[in-house]
């Protein structure tokens, strides 16, 4: 009896929301949202256009969406992930592709709360120092500047700098594994690389570095829109 295991079979497509207190194994396709208390395993031939949330999330297939785990996330060989990855422990094996923001360490919160958290934590200690009555008028102005660094931190995940770095790391690692089959040495090196990122304090550190590289991408849609408008005007 596998009462606490759910399997989405190879020929099955689920559109919508999957919730519950069980382990989930995805061999087919899932679109929408997955939020379970147990483990989530995405098979090598599984596809998920969904945010996946669970205790331990293991990915061998393709995901377009954010991954959140309360314990760990393992991206195994063959995994393709486009989205943010947040968990206390994150392992990215050789051969796994990731495009997105990766956060290890505590506070595996949702992306929205994670962004708000630095501002909130910065504001609360100050508010605590000031007397309770006096702090009421003062907190709003302090809360206002607080978001300023956080938008700066926001572009960092979406900026090309990060994904490119991971892609390069992946491409470097791939030949070495092909050459000598020694994927083991390169794997620890990657996992060693991740812990230093773990403290959330690093997020602002990355932000200024990535900020100068950020601006270029938005140019593309602007061109398209302008071109469309120009076309319609000419026809009219």
């Amino acid at each position: 009896m596998n009462g606490d295991v759910a399997t989405i079979g190879r020929g099955t497509v689920v559109r919508g929301r999957i919730t519950g207190a069980a382990n989930l194994e995805i061999l087919g396709r899932v679109e929408g949202e997955v939020e379970v208390d147990g483990d989530v395993v995405l098979d090598a031939r599984g596809l998920a256009a969904a945010s996946l949330s669970g205790r331990r999330v293991t990915i061998r297939g393709a995901v377009r969406g954010d991954l959140v785990a309360t314990e760990s996330i393992v991206l195994e060989d063959g995994a393709r992930v486009v989205g943010d990855v947040r968990a206390p422990r994150v392992a990215i094996a050789t051969g796994a592709l990731v495009r997105g923001y990766v956060q290890t360490g505590d506070a595996p919160a949702a992306s929205s709360t994670a962004r708000a958290r630095p501002a909130a934590s910065a504001a609360t200690p100050r508010a605590a120092n000031v007397s309770a009555t006096a702090s009421a008028p003062r907190t709003p102005p302090r809360a206002a500047p607080a978001p300023v660094p956080s938008p700066a931190a926001r572009p960092a995940p979406s900026a090309p700098a990060r994904p490119v770095a991971t892609a390069i790391a992946g491409s470097h690692a791939a030949p070495s594994s092909n050459g000598s089959q020694a994927s083991q040495p390169s794997q620890p090196s990657q996992t060693e690389r991740t812990p230093p990122r773990a403290p959330s304090a690093h997020a602002p550190v990355h932000a200024p570095a990535a900020a100068p590289k950020g601006p270029p991408p938005p140019v593309m849609p602007a061109l398209k829109k302008g071109a469309k408008g120009a076309m319609s005007k000419k026809r009219a």
């Binding site: 759910a6 689920v14 919508g16 929301r17 999957i18 069980a22 989930l24 379970v36």
Partner: peptide, 10 residues
């Protein structure tokens, strides 16, 4: 599985 809820289309 018994603990799972799916809202949507299968």
């Amino acid at each position: 599985g018994a603990g799972i809820t799916i809202d949507g289309e299968i």
